[in-house]
Structure formats: C-alpha cells, structure tokens
Design a protein around this nucleic acid. Sequence first.
RNA 1: GCCCGGGUGGUGAAAUGGUAGACACGAGGGACUUAAAAUCCCUUGGUCCGUAAGGGCUGUGCGGGUUCAAGUCCCGCCCCGGGCACCA
Length: 964
Amino acid sequence: MQYEHTEIEKKWQDEWRKRSTYRVENDTAKPKYYVLDMFPYPSGAGLHVGHPLGYIASDIVARYKRHSGFNVLHPMGYDSFGLPAEQYAIQTGQHPVKTTEINLARYREQLDRIGFSFDWSREVRTSDPNYYKWTQWIFLQLFDSWYDPDQDKARPISELIARFEERGCKGQDASVLTGDIEEFMGEFDAAEWKAFDERTKQLVLQYFRLAYLSDAWVNWCPALGTVLANDEVKDGVSERGGHPVERKKMRQWSMRITAYAQRLLDSLDDLDWSTSLKESQRNWIGRSEGATVRFAVGNDFIEVFTTRPDTLFGVSFITLAPEHVLVGKYTTDDRRPEVEAYVKTASNRSERERQAEVDKVSGVFTGSYAKHPFTGADVPIWVGDYVLSGYGTGAVMAVPGGDQRDWRFAKHFGLPIVAVTEGAEIDKEADERKDATICSEGFLKGMKVPEAITRAIQELEKLNAGEGRINFRLRDAAFGRQRYWGEPIPIYYKDGIPYPLPESALPLVLPEVDKFLPTEDGEPPLARAKNWSYEGNPLETTTMPGWAGSSWYFLRYMDPTNEGRFASPEAITYWQQIDLYMGGSEHATGHLLYFRFWTKFLHDRGWLPFDEPAKKLVNQGMIQGVSAKVLSVAAASFETNIKNVPSLYISSRAFTAMNQSGDYSLVKQVLAELNKGFDGVVTEITVTRLYADVRFVGMNDELDTDAFKRDREKNGSELNVRFIAENDGTFICSREVEKMSKSKFNVVNPDDIISKYGADTLRLYEMFLGPLEQSKPWDTNGIEGTFRFLRKFWNLFYESDVFSVSDEAPTKAEFKVLHATLKKVTEDIEHMSFNTSVSQFMIAVNELAALKCHKRDVLEPLTIALAPFAPHIAEELWQQLDHTESITTAPWPKWDAQYLVEDNFSYPISFNGKTRMQLEFPIALSKEEVEAQVLANPEVQQRLEGKAPKKVIVVPKRIVNIVV
RNA sequence: GCCCGGGUGGUGAAAUGGUAGACACGAGGGACUUAAAAUCCCUUGGUCCGUAAGGGCUGUGCGGGUUCAAGUCCCGCCCCGGGCACCA
C-alpha cells in the first residue's frame, strides 16, 4: 500500500473527533501542563501558511507532554470582537455577528485540517455573552478597587472609604494618582470627607478607582470614530487601517495600569521570556529616577520632573507644555494674545506633525518668572511644544548646558546658556555626559554627577522644594471605544455620576441598533439602542477595547462553562499559570502588558494564587512571502508608425543578458513581427516589475506564462501579450522576500499545500524551515524533501506494498540509530529546536532504510517519537501495528545510553590546528597511549619529517592536535 | 541617537572553543523505463595541481586579539531586521 495522505488524514481527523481524543479533564492525579497559543482574531482573509507556525510548534510540545505523562491543557478560541468586522458591518449593513460566524467557521475548518490537538470543548469567544459576562465582571472589580501604595496592592474601594472616614486623605495617599496631568485634588480630613455630598464623594473616588472616568488627552482617530490606546498608534496613524490620529481631550474610561508600573517592571526578571521582548516592555514602561523640583511663582509654584537635579544651578528658564493647566494662569496680559495663539496652533498639530518636525524649535514667553529654589534668581517661564504634556509633570527646568533640547531652544530664542560640567563645549552643544564633574557655582561644584544628584535631592528636601521621585513613561490605558462591536461597559449614570451595575444584571448584552454608526449628535452607536437604560438611568454608551477580552481568557479555558464564576478556585489551583505561551512579537507592548496587569490585579484581590499569567513565552518568527516579479518591457523607437505595441514580458535572465550586451534585437524582432517588417531603432528600454501570483510560479522560478496571461486578461484586457523566454523556452521571474500579503500576490494558503502533500508534510516542513524564533521566507520548493521523508518512513513498514514488520530482535546498529534519534529528538523538543529534530528523523529513516530494518522494536518507538510532529501518519501506522488505543496514550520512549556507547573513535589528527588525517583508536585508550600511538604512526612521522613536535594535545573522543 | 536580534554554499540551514557546511532543496551525472512520473545511486563552498588515485591553498560580513585550536570568546568597525525615541 502506498502512503495516501488524504485518506489517512481525513480518517484520523474524523476518528479523533468521534472519540474526543483530545478532551481534557480537570480532575486527575496527573501533573498539569498548560500550553497556550495567543488568541487569534479571525479575519476574513483566513489563514496563510505563516499563521500556523506557532500553533504547530505548540502542538508538538502539547503532544510530547501528553506522551510524557502530563495532563495537558491546550485550548483554542477567538478574540472575536474587533474593528474589521464592524467596519465591514458599516459598509454592508450586515450584522458583525454574522460575518464573525462566517470567519470563525472558515478558520476552524482550516485549523482542523492541520491536525491540532486542541480541546475544542473548551473553546471561548470574547463576543459570546457567557464569556463577556465575566469580562464585565472583572471591569466592575477594577471599578471597585483602588491601589494602596503602602501595601503595594489593589484593595476594595470600601476600605478606602473606611480610611477616609477615619483619617481623610493627605500626603502620600494621593501618590497613586496618575493619568495625564490630573488636577491636584487637594487634601481633606475625616470630618471634611463626611461632610462631602454624594456627588463630591463619588468624584473624589474617581481619582482612585483602577477603572475610572476622567478628562484625559486621548488619541482620537476621526476616520475610525474612536479613541485608541498608545500602542494602537504607530507613527501618528492608527495601527489598523493607517488613519490619522489627533490629540483630543475627552471624558474617557481609563485603566490605572500605571499603578502597577513598578511591579510590571520588577517581575519581568523572573519570567522565561526572550530578552528582546522583556526589553520592549522595559522600554515601554520607561522608568526613570530623578526628582521633582518646585519653583515658586508668587504664592504658588510650578513643579517639574528632572533626572538631573545636579544641574539645577544651570537652569536658565522653565518650559511648560502647551497643554499645561498653568499656562493660562502665568501668562501676563501683555503676552496673552501671543501665548494663546501659540497654544492653539500647538494643540492643533497632530502627534504626527510634532514628530515629523523635531528640528523645528517653537515656543513663546509667558511674561512671568519663577524663583530658583537655591539661588532665588528669577527664572523666565516659557511655553514650548518640545515638552510633552503626558510625561512627568508636563513642565521642565531647562538646562541648556546639560540637555540638547534645552540647548536648541535657548539658542533659538537667545536665552542664556550656562556650563554645568567641566569640559563642556557649550557653544557647540550641551554636555549630557553622566560621568562628568559639576562646575557650576554653588554647593555642588566639584562633585561627580551621581554624588551631586544625591546631594541636590537632600537640599531640595530640606527646603521643601522637591524630593526624589521615580517617573514612568507608561500611561494609563484608554478603555472606552466609541464603537458597537465590543463588550458594553456595565455602568449607568445617575446625576451624571457613574455607578456600577449589580452583578445580577450581568451580562449586559450588546443591544440591537438600526445602524452601526454614531448618532447625529456624535454619540456612539449604542446610543441608538432602544431602552438603553438601567432602572430608568442611562447606560454607558462606549464599549470596551479589543484588549479587554484577551486580558484574562487563559483563565476561562480552565473552566469554560462555569456560570457562577470566571473559573472555579479548584480549576485555577490545578492549572495555575501558562507553562508555555506561544505567539507573535507584535503583542510585546500591547496585549502582554494588559494581560500581566489584569493577572496581577486578580491576584491582589485574592482570586488568583499567582500574579503572572505565563511563565515561559516564545515568539515564533514571521514567515515571509517570496514575491515573484515579471519584467515588463516598454520600448521606445524613433519610428512613430508602430501600431501594435505589445505587452512585452521578458524572462529575468534573458533580460540581464540583453542589458549586459546592449543587444536589443529580441525586442526589435517582436516589434517587427507585430508591425510587419518594422526596422526602426530601439532607442530606449524601460522596465517595470509586475507582481505575478506565486501560484503561477513553479520550480526554479519558472512562470506558467499561460496561467499568468489568463489572469492578466481576467483583470483587464491585454491584446498583444508576448513573452521573451530563455533559450530553453522557460520563462524566469525575479524573486524578492517581502511580507506575506494579498497585495503582494505572495500568499501561500495552507489548504493548497495540504491538498497536495498533506497536513503532516506541512507540519514537518514548517518546522524544518529553520529555528522557530527566526523569521524566514516561505519557499514551497523545498517541501518535497519532507514529503519524501514521510514516504520513506511509511515504506519502512512495507515490503513490496505489503505491511510487513518483523518481531526479530534488532541489531546493535539498528538500536543505535533508534536511540540516537530518541535522544536528539527528546532534547530538541525540550529546547524547542524542531528543525534539527526533523533532520534527525530524516537521518534515522535514511539509515534504517540502508540497513533494511523493518523491525517492530525499532519502528514502534520511532513512530511514537514522530507522532507529535506528524500525528496522522503515526496514528495510522500505530493502528497497523495492531494497537487499538490512540497513539496519544503511548508513553514517550526513553533513550538508553548503553546503545550509544562506541568502542572506537576515529580521531581527526591535526597539525597546527589543520586536520590532515584520521586514526581510529579504542575509546578506552588513555591520553598518553593515544599520543604514543599517533606519534608511532608512519604517516605522522612522514609529516613530521623526523622533527620532534613542540607539543601534542589529545582531547579524548574529540581531537588530536600536533604542534610543530 | 538608544536598546535588542542577526550576517556561514546557488537556497533554507547545522555545528557543548575541537574534522565548518549535518539534514533538505536546487543543480550536474548515472540506473530502471518504449517514454514519463515515481524510485534509487554518485558528485556538488571556492580555487589550484594531477590522466587518475589523491593532494595543496583558501573559506563562516570586515580589521585586530586571546588560544595548541575561533563560525563560536574579547576589542574596534560595516551591513541587515525589529523595538523605542523632542521621555526632561
């Protein structure tokens, strides 16, 4: 019997479904292992060959762990809320539920064909009310919590209220207040708190809640009609769709992720994640140590943040961000028109413009002065858009001698530049060295920078003019979306104050609306819903962002149908953290930060025994497309009477040759053919490169010209199409490695590969391509190798088409092949080095075929070892080996070192490090004996030409090096 | 500019400081076949010497260094990919 992949794969996919082979139970004595793939968003385009790369790798690990005696949780589900489905709904009027259903079905079908061992009975979808009930529930817990900086954890808001009733709010209590320049709330004592009316109390609490409503500067995207989080904006445009984004102040739901900044940073150290990913997170959190300094202005003050308090004596002005609340206050009347005009233009400039015009210095003087805390000197207060409102306090003390941006600003406006460090060349640039010595007059003079920083902070604290402070770049996350297709936020309003829905009212189900567009008044789509109210009070109309549902989904898989909780404590205690989390590096700063944040929060409030979601995380590399391009030639001629201008395509190598020789007779020839005896001079050749769909390109970059032509004709008429081929008649495309995408016509669909070669070949080939974490181009050409391997493997079980596996005892050589393979494959899976394990399987099959080995004791363990990689063929052969239970229940075969012991070793004999010959010696031989025998060898003697070697190095079982 | 990766044949790649290029694709040659497909065998980094057997030199982005021995370790550069960036 031949290896019939189509038949075998269909048979076992059906069989696994029927038998629920991959169903996982929570109650078992086995140790657990949790392998999770990052939640896919099921787009309409379906899967291309790059998507399953990570799924295949994690599936191999899941299967391997199952063989190794673990109870493996390996689920899959969908992040099914999101903008694309909604955009589509707006365009077509079709409900996003419908399009989502269609996309999910297609996704599932594609996934099923690859033979994954997912437990589909645990599937979750973020858009399912039974799921988002718990997303809403977690939101309510966040709303009902504050961050206690003393205990360094989230606590119920009731405990904060109790505290206010007891001792009010003062000093450090407000230190967790975050957000973009929140107005200072002020202190109050217990009596004052009790005297506050309900409205005031609620407003105060908003400052502390982890999910809170406030006026914040947001990234507003007019084209999408919604607010975006910082990580959803790339280079000033929206990450999805590339629409422009502008700054806007809006009343907005936010998540106080900043309260967790330090913890998010600290616990990175213990995670088994890639360094680059951890670095991205550290970067994004952006911790910097420094000090706040208060500059008095009359009876008031301006607070700045600086990492260099040691340069305080070099301050020559203060710059406020245009959005800073104090700008209006400190602008003198005579400067007011100018300042207001500047603030207006500055705030109208989008992030993108500000970024693009980094070199353009702009600013304006407010007319006011602040007092230097040490010298008492007058320091002018300026406004400049190089200061960001969202970082630090939105104000800087400008030290042109020590900061290049301040230097540029000072130069531009003719402000004084004072040297703060020895050796600074301040007429050229600021000196930002952190190992310099302070030279500015004052008590810091002569100190090294670090020492001066400490001292400056001490002095500031003495004067009550500032203190040491740690600042973070991380901002609170915008949480509300002015969109339809997301989780409704379970909040209603009474007298304009937000109140949480009771748990009994969950899920707050997404209402039907007549259109998925904002209302005429610019209200979000939910405002169109009828009776969108709770007990007569209006409900919140914004919905949650895409990252809400994906920030806790790993917990739901543990107990997906629980109606009383997001997951039972028993399930959580059993499954714990994700042991292996697999996904793309594009989620480095978005999903993975929120994911960690929610986990820490749920931990703080006592619902989780751990505070990190994933112990180990692996980023699979991207699979790039290899685009094919066809050279299209346009010829210009002195002759103007050419009537028939053909679409002329020229094969890549022929073109290169033509270009080198300068002989364009081929082009002329075609023109002559079409224009009856054209004999003009071809004066100019211009070439454009057109994409050819990679489906038309075969082995060795050869284009199927007929298919290409038909395709071109389908998409518009081309009358005269001519191809200039190579001498052998083939037409060659030029190739280029690019991102795999529809627009580049280089998408390879896994379905096509599976139809031709089968899922097992696809799985093996994706792993064989190279190291998992590296990006690599997809080249279908190489797939034959893995396909041939599977056929050869199959043939080990067959002799002239008859299944024949013998029970004869294997020879030493056969056992050696088996155990060497088991050792390598086992170790490789542990290190996630799948490309080398596939190589090892190939070596094994080649060697066993050469040995004509058809023995059960070799083939059976080998089949189990192959099962994680190629489950269908393994399962089929397992059955043919007379097993009735699925191969997934077979224990992993252990390698045995005794079969790998060699008696002899063939030593490479090198002279001065260059290998010259091989000599075989028994392993048992000592160093000295090897040395003696090597030197006694006639060929060695001949090479030594009678001279005594300077030195002989013998490394047992490695090498002999003779130094002459 | 800063922070991470990475640079090895025609291609994807392999290599605890110890025989560079395993494995696979492609290419070339051969066997089987009426022919094709499939399969199998041989050759395949470059270069030079030799009729051949075989042998020499050279070679892991570039330049230095450490070492008996460097793709691997150290120093200084170049190039490519990714992340961050008027972050005070």
